[in-house]
Design a protein around this nucleic acid. Structure first.
Lengths: 245, 245
DNA sequence: CGACTCATTGAGTCATATCAATTGTCGTGG
DNA sequence: CCACGACAATTGATATGACTCAATGAGTCG
């Protein structure tokens, strides 16, 4: 099973051969986007659903003072706007952070999935609810953890989410310090401070300008990472002593 | 239309007489809970769905250091755990903050609604997606707004959400400063400081120990409140110049 | 003329220092 | 549970310089 979408949705429950074939067909044609390109803007009501196949995108809002708040990282296998139809219009923007491969799926295809592939339909709702669980954890992260733990926690989450779609080999997080800062709700200068201390404590290291993780268990312990909120039925077991609990 | 659930779901789109009657039947029997009572705990997989009819409840997590993070306020018309079935188990706790009236709905009733009442089904998904939009806004609130604006923003949101279910007459927010602090990710001492300054600037006032709002427009302007994220199709129009935009 | 080298420039990113503002911690009393 | 004070820690604001990298264009040589 190579397809990231199929791997991701398999975390929701078992999919059968027919499901996998249908998903494979869905993701046949990608297009590539440059870093820092907008995909959808606030107020849009797009008629196609966007799916990330490679790279890192994000949900973000721009504030009156010009600063940006990143509210979600979209990794391979993540949908950008599965349910805009129900809300009517986007209440935030979506854009790439790194170079990305995207799939555009007609809304009619999604509805056909929901109607004729009950296991996939359930998995799509699972994905939506996990997105919500991630948002809750980010809220805890922002509210209650010091920003060094907060950054460590974010890195652990991305590591595990990539692992759950088979992309953790050669893990690296190629975000700029400004992008990290916008995600954590801190200033770029402070993000630099924290990267420096984490590097000094050997909790992260650098591969060029991308963050890598020499010892994921140490990073998890440092940040108090508990993977339960990701609801990875398949993956968590394989992680063994991953995390602190 | 007295029923808070019906009023809430009407914000998603028009419901018809048959829908309203069905919803009325759903909420026939309440039970009352004391303040600070747990409703569901992390790890539970409850077989009934809980709906708040009166009072304020919350989603929260407890952290290793003993502190608490409140990730959502549940107001009249809000479901506590509509979709746990899909995720398997709760990844957080739910408990009352004030005295609450709750309805326990058998999961089979929900499934019957989803199958036989398409307008209600759509409205329930709408409610779920709005919950997610609120989480995103809270994340922005925590990350990018100073805590005085943050508290003001929270009060504006609660005011508008209550208004959207017909409960804004005699608005008051009867939370303790500790509960407010856990919601905003700050310390109780700091919450006290902020309440004091907001009071001093006549942005809020007190009715006993509950916060009230002498001038909602001033509070909205102060916090930069933009109600778009609540997706209140019916209500926002009636607010006129409510908010800053 | 065309292809190549190689300074120059400028945007973007990272590193570091200093000072100020916000927020947390602890303690005391109503 | 609320109010308030004193002090400490964290984080923000501002400024400056170094570094990479791509684009440009002048000069050199076949």
């Amino acid at each position: 099973m190579q397809n990231v979408l199929a791997r991701k949705l398999s975390n929701a429950g078992t999919l059968e051969e027919s499901d996998l074939i249908r998903l494979e067909k869905l993701t046949a044609t990608c297009r590539q986007l440059s870093p820092k390109t907008d995909i959808i803007g606030q107020g849009d009501a797009p008629d196609r659903v966007h799916l990330v196949m490679d790279g890192v995108a994000c949900r973000y809002k721009l504030l009156p003072d010009g600063s940006r708040s990143i509210m979600a990282l979209l990794l391979p296998g993540d949908f950008c706007d599965l349910h805009v139809a129900i809300l009517g219009q986007m209440d935030h923007n979506i854009g790439t952070l790194t170079q990305c491969d995207l799939v555009d799926i007609p809304r009619s295809d999604i509805e056909e999935l929901l109607n004729n592939y009950p296991r996939i339909a359930r998995a799509l709702w699972w994905a939506t609810l996990v997105d919500e669980a991630v948002l809750r954890e980010w809220l805890v992260n922002m509210g209650k953890r010091r920003s060094d733990r907060q950054m460590a926690h974010l890195i652990c989450e991305v590591y595990l989410r990539l692992k759950s779609v088979g992309r953790s080999e050669d893990f690296h997080l190629p975000l700029t310090q400004e992008q990290l800062a916008d995600t954590l709700g801190i200033t770029p200068v402070h993000a630099q401070r924290i990267v420096a201390t984490l590097k000094q404590d050997n909790l992260i290291s650098m591969a060029g300008r991308a963050i890598t993780v020499p010892d994921i268990h140490a990073l998890c312990a440092f940040s108090g990472f508990d993977p339960d909120y990701l609801h990875l039925k398949n993956t968590t077991r394989t992680l063994g002593a991953f995390g602190v609990n």
